[in-house]
């Protein structure tokens, strides 16, 4: 029953060969088998959101998926955000707005917000507030995370309006 299954996991564009029992969660496989420890594990039952990653364009809890379920999918983690040592706009906005203190929840928040912007670029402020309630942060009181998100949302909106030739 606990026999290992061999499969391949595609994370941030890189293929990893995995051999693990079916019960291993995607969160644990990312940390232990792919050695990508940016994805944090908190509650292990879907409540805290520290393990949030993007699977096939959707922000999901990596503790509520078994690793074997992610074979054939594109997984993105916090390690995939910065390009050539340049932080993504959202990561930079987190720093600029002091949106983290201890940082344990930060990778989960970054992937949650990235996933939501990707699926729904026109997401409104009320929906963003509801979105942020998905994950737990015990340091910031959320206010600064919301500021960082709104800053990036405004930039995204300006860019998409420029792209279709509307005045920004």
């Amino acid at each position: 029953m606990s026999e290992k299954i061999e499969f391949s996991l595609k994370v941030n564009g890189t293929d990893f060969s995995i051999a693990c029992p079916p019960r291993k969660t995607l969160a644990d496989a990312l940390r232990e088998d792919c050695r990508l420890t940016g994805t944090h594990v908190g509650c292990e039952h879907g409540v805290c959101g520290a393990c949030t990653v993007v699977v096939d364009g959707r922000a999901v809890r990596a503790c509520l998926m078994f690793a074997v379920q992610a074979q054939g999918s594109e997984v993105r983690t916090v390690e995939g955000l910065a390009q050539n040592d340049v932080l993504s706009p959202l990561q930079q906005a987190f720093i600029d707005n002091h949106a983290l203190q201890c940082g344990f929840c930060t990778p989960g928040f970054l992937m949650l917000i990235n996933g939501a912007f990707e699926r729904d670029p026109d997401i409104c402020e009320d929906e963003l507030t509801e979105l942020l309630s998905s994950n737990l942060c015990r340091c910031t009181g959320y206010r600064n995370i919301a500021r960082a998100v709104l800053q990036v949302a405004d930039k995204l909106k300006a860019r998409s309006e420029l792209a279709v030739g509307k005045p920004s």
């Binding site: 959101g49 959707r58 809890r61 509520l64 949650l112 996933g115 939501a116 509801e130 979105l131 998905s134």
Partner: peptide
Amino acid sequence: SRHIAHYPIRQR
């Protein structure tokens, strides 16, 4: 649908 759990849970 927007009353069901939280956003990442609703994605799956």
